[in-house]
């Protein structure tokens, strides 16, 4: 599924224009002057393959594939350092998250296999279902998304921590706690999905 156009040459602006018009905060991305404040402010800056600044330049350069397969869009932890510091007030966080959504929509492999994509999926599953993140289930779903044997391996590696957490009541066994009025949450999420479907 191709939501966004795929440029055939460098600096074909079709993808950039799609981002400007369709990605949350994308219109303000146009004002990026490539100063580097965002990438330098990012606590995960050195673990991103490009960092937001370069990613924005790549969007302009029409490098859709590289952008949507980058780990940058998955590694944002929403600390908002970049957003408050950006001298051009570009909402970097929104843009990265919405680009991640686009990567999912377009079915990029990285959107399924990137570790943060996996984690995000597990996180969402728990949050949407229970209204909370259940540490045990989120971790389990995340670990086992790598396959059974890998999941077992990862679980065992962290067993001691899990036990300590249970002991100190940081993690509980049994049914996940639910929020009150779970139905309301469902309604909210349904409405959000409806808005998203309409706007995109």
């Amino acid at each position: 599924m191709n939501a966004a156009p795929t440029p055939t040459r460098k600096y074909d602006l079709s993808f950039a224009r799609y981002v400007y018009q369709n990605i949350d905060g994308g219109d303000r991305m146009a004002k990026c002057m490539q100063c580097g404040t965002c990438s330098g402010s990012c606590p995960l800056g050195d673990q991103m393959d490009y960092g937001p600044r370069k990613l924005f330049m790549m969007i302009r350069a029409g490098m859709k594939e590289a952008v949507l397969t980058s780990n940058t869009i998955w590694n944002c932890v929403s600390c908002y350092n970049c957003v408050v510091r950006c001298p051009r007030k570009v909402p970097v966080t929104y843009i990265l998250h919405d680009l991640a959504t686009l990567a999912v929509k377009e079915g990029y492999e990285q959107a399924k296999t990137a570790i943060n994509a996996r984690f995000a999926k597990a996180f969402w599953w728990s949050a949407a279902r229970w209204g909370r993140t259940d540490e045990r289930l989120v971790t389990a779903i995340y670990y086992f998304s790598f396959g059974l044997s890998q999941g077992m391996k990862m679980s065992l590696a962290n067993l001691k921590i899990a036990q300590a957490m249970v002991k100190t009541k940081r993690m509980h066994l049994g049914m996940p706690h639910k929020i009150k009025n779970g139905g309301d949450l469902k309604a909210i999420l349904a409405k959000a999905a409806e808005i998203q479907a309409r706007d995109h």
Partner: peptide, 19 residues
């Protein structure tokens, strides 16, 4: 580069951080 922040380095002096 527009430095993102200046912190205190181990030697007590300024440390400039950024990309």
């Amino acid at each position: 580069s527009k430095p993102s922040r200046i912190e205190v380095a181990e030697d007590g002096g300024p440390m400039v951080c950024g990309e």
